[in-house]
């Protein structure tokens, strides 16, 4: 458990909870995306390779 008193920054409880929701949503989105990628691969459509994230 996060000890709020010891934190270098206050992350805010709301931020913690909203991350849980977002992570759950992204999990579902990821799940459906994988199904679509799989279906596409069955009919021979190749999905683009993941680029390096930042191109810094």
């Amino acid at each position: 458990m996060v000890d709020l008193m010891l934190l270098y920054i206050d992350p805010g409880t709301g931020s913690m909870i909203v991350q849980m929701l977002i992570a759950a949503f992204l999990g579902i989105a990821y799940f459906f995306r994988s199904i679509i990628t799989f279906l596409k691969s069955l009919v021979g459509i190749k999905s683009p390779e993941n680029e390096d994230e930042t191109n810094l």
Partner: peptide, 22 residues
């Protein structure tokens, strides 16, 4: 919507509820 609007709403409504993340 998620990172800003929803996040802003949650930051306000949960600001005093430290036990919620246990």
């Amino acid at each position: 919507y998620m990172h800003i609007h929803l996040h802003a709403r949650f930051s306000q409504s949960h600001e005093r509820n430290a036990n919620a993340t246990k």
